[in-house]
Amino acid sequence: MQPIIEIRGLEKTYASGFQALKGIDLDIRRGEILALLGPNGAGKTTLISIVCGIVRATSGSVTVDGHDIVRDWRAARSLIGLVPQELTTEAFESVWATVSFSRGLFGKPSNPALIERILKDLSLWDKKDTKVMALSGGMKRRVLIAKALSHEPSILFLDEPTAGVDVELRRGMWEMIGRLRDSGVTIILTTHYIEEAEEMADSIGVISGGRIILVEEKAALMEKLGKRLLTLQLQNPLNAIPAELADYPLTLSAGGRELVYRFDTQQERTGIAGLLRKLGDHGINYTNLRTEESSLEEIFVSLVRERA
């Protein structure tokens, strides 16, 4: 199936000379949730802004559902809803007016029933006549989401949707994003919270220094890059790792009562058997052992560090 968004050789150099994007190639599949991870200044927002028509690309092309964003901008833009990172809202308008305005702006006839449903879904219904400036940060964020959804986009960009949103509300938002995905909307979200990507995304893209470092299905990525940890609870605490075990990537934790071994799941030999044998040989006894997979966060940090 044709990707819903195709980005080819996208570059952006700002007037200041700063090169924010250095040749981005990216395909986004229809109906997936893609999480774009990257440190601050990696180019996430610039990338989104170009696709949405807010920033002009220096070179390269973007098509949205087959429509070139420059030549066929009207068709391309009407498919996209954008929730910006900054809480940019009209101050004096009511929630209802500002959300209805967005729908009109995107060329859709008014549909009060739909706006009502969106506001109810986002727990904003009782605030519909409140002026936007009287709302809390989390509510303003939801107003921005309501505005983006008001014109029934088939692609939704969420630029750090849960920044500054409390934990409970974040859960609620994740659920809502999940429901949108189920209804067939393609969702691209940028985030600092790796937890968020891990929880929701189907695919993960990592962007750093204006380049896409990788795009991969989340499960495959975790498997491919994931490191596992073997933690041994020692009978007698150690002060230092014995010299005989220096070949193994070992660390001590919990005040010397735990020995942690890091191994790669991709290698044919994990080295666990050998390690355990050596421990026995040196009279280091353990009472318990457990293994765990590394989180996406650790994968991400190691990736960005590697390329930097």
Partner: peptide, 16 residues
């Protein structure tokens, strides 16, 4: 809208 930043919406809308 330029000052408050809400201009993003007009710029990203299918409007000439």
């Amino acid at each position: 809208p330029r000052y408050s930043g809400t201009i993003y919406e007009v710029l990203s809308a299918p409007i000439s």
